[in-house]
Design a protein around this nucleic acid. Structure first.
Lengths: 332, 332
DNA sequence: TTGAAAGCGCTAACAC
DNA sequence: GTGTTAGCGCTTTCAA
């Protein structure tokens, strides 16, 4: 592998001139430039990023810590983020914490050791030490998908999302409503449910039934319990799309029609939702905006204090086939 | 940030001794070791990986180039690979080529510039220059998900997978069969279809209908065309699960029951398949094995010639709800 | 065992 | 503009 030295020698110029040419900060005379370029081509020379990183004290790389890259919501986020970052000339380290606080922590410190220019983290679970660690480092850290008190973050307005879901159901005429509430990512889910019940209340409706459990398919599959109640709900709100998919399966399996017998609405807008039959109504998170803002905050760490640099992204209601006006229930 | 120099000074030893202690290659006397560790703790010293990389000429990092990380099959693969690599002390760069040959190429050369210790690539499309570039570099490159002539690769035995699907349909009693054939990833798909038709032929059955198109939902949604034929197939083979999902949607939408009216089988085993109603029968790729082998080949580049180091992974038939014996068709 | 010293390949003063 | 030079922080001979 040729070095800058080889190029300089071959071009008959000083090593410094080659560096100047490469970084075109300091101008280089046209004829020398030509000779340098020629030598570069001849050798197939490429600058060694390891050396450059050591010298410049920056690596043009950032780490992305996610709980599980095979979760489509995170994968989509990773895609958007990686594109933005790459377009700005920075590479992304994929760090899958597997929902494990120890692994997450190890990834974080490893990224610091590697002199990553920044870190984006989607952390999950109360066991995470990242908020503490992030506060101690000078490396820019952006918390994605959920806000962290006093630190830089980008998250959807979950409370608003909850109200959107409620208002949608209300406007359709539902008054007997159930909710499937995950308890994994505490703050986010609480906000969703908070917004949901508040908006319901504002419409004079109380949330009739609530089922708690971990935020996954299994929780959704308990939807059938709700339908076996003496007065089953006419609509069900699931705190995310995965839970909604679970509900969709169990409801259809047990012969309930969606939305004729019961309306179903989720949260997130994962791709699978729109492929279902009927397609799932949901509160869509704006993944592009989430990713773009995170990249922006990382790339341009402004002088503003951390708490002033948290972005809140507006969600949007997607009315698809799984929600409709309630059927008359006189016969039941 | 403290350097190795600071630690040496504080511990009253030479810089070299600290390095020896850190890498415990060369032994260090116990008392010195203790003093060094103490200084390390006091400073919160961490070795600078940029400097180490420059000196050691290796970065403990590899690049993973994928066409689209939001594709669940690739995301799953990325997860497995990242875990294996991380457990071996290697970080993974996520490089999303967005199905773009130019972007893919740029990622590849960038990884080379960064002195990545290896590169795993899932490339897509005939436009890819990676096989050529990979042949020219000394950096280990592993092609994942599809074999490349003369280079190191790990891929599922697609031909076998095709025969598995065919035998399954045959054993169920199907004789009138259609196929939805994607034409994106040429070699893989050709092998799947090749195995499928060969096994069918071995059972005395000819593939009755074939629809070609790009490997996506839209192709699947043409399944209905097959059902409108005078003698519609009793079973449909889709060359991947995404196509199968498209078929599933359109078939159910148009009132065809699965598997009563028509059996449906896919390829890959993406998670969504098992969540459908009925759950999708499919030829499952062994994603763990694919990822593990790729990591293995990268971590331990043996002396064997490239073509002798390509792994072929055995797929497995998953009989789920979407396939069953054909209904008697006398009435039609 | 330990320490001194020579770089890894590059950038960024600095003097000319 | 151009060349010289001093490192970035670390590893690794080499002698002692």
């Amino acid at each position: 592998m040729a070095t800058i030295k080889d190029v300089a020698k071959a071009a008959g110029v000083s090593l410094g001139s080659v560096s100047h040419y490469l970084n075109n900060q300091v101008p280089v005379s046209p004829d020398k430039a030509a000779r340098i370029q020629q030598a570069i081509d001849a050798f197939g020379y490429r600058v060694d990023q390891s050396a450059r990183s050591l010298r410049r004290r920056q690596t043009q790389s950032v780490g992305l810590i996610v709980p599980d890259i095979s979760n489509p919501f995170y994968a989509e986020l990773a895609r958007v983020l990686e594109h933005r970052l790459w377009d700005a000339g920075v590479q992304t380290f994929l760090c899958d914490s597997a929902h494990d606080a120890k692994r997450e922590r190890a990834h974080f410190t490893n990224l610091l050791d590697r002199q990553a220019d920044g870190i984006v983290v989607i952390y999950e679970g109360k066991a995470s030490e990242l908020p503490k660690l992030a506060a101690e480092t000078s490396t820019p850290v952006v918390f994605l998908d959920r806000p962290v008190e006093g630190l830089v973050s980008v998250a959807t307005d979950n409370y608003l999302g909850g109200t959107l879901a409620a208002r949608h159901l209300l406007s359709l005429g539902h008054t007997l409503i159930g909710a499937l509430v995950g308890d994994g990512e505490v703050a986010n889910i609480r906000a969703r449910v908070g917004g949901f019940t508040a908006a319901l209340a504002a419409g004079g409706v109380a949330l009739a039934y609530t089922l708690h459990g971990s935020q996954n398919l299994a929780l959704g599959e308990r939807a059938e319990e709700l339908m076996r109640l003496p007065e089953p709900p006419t609509a069900i709100f699931a705190t995310n799309d995965i839970v909604a998919v679970g509900a969709w399966r169990t409801l259809l399996t047990h012969g309930f029609r969606i939305p004729e017998d019961v309306s179903l609405i989720g949260f997130d807008n994962i791709e699978m939702g729109r492929l279902l039959l009927p397609p799932l109504s949901t509160v869509a998170q704006d993944i592009s905006a989430l990713g773009a803002h995170a990249a922006e905050l990382l790339l341009n760490p402004s002088e503003l204090p951390a708490h002033a640099r948290s972005a809140v992204i507006t969600p949007q209601l997607l009315h698809r086939g799984s929600t409709a006006a309630p059927r008359e229930r006189s016969a039941m």
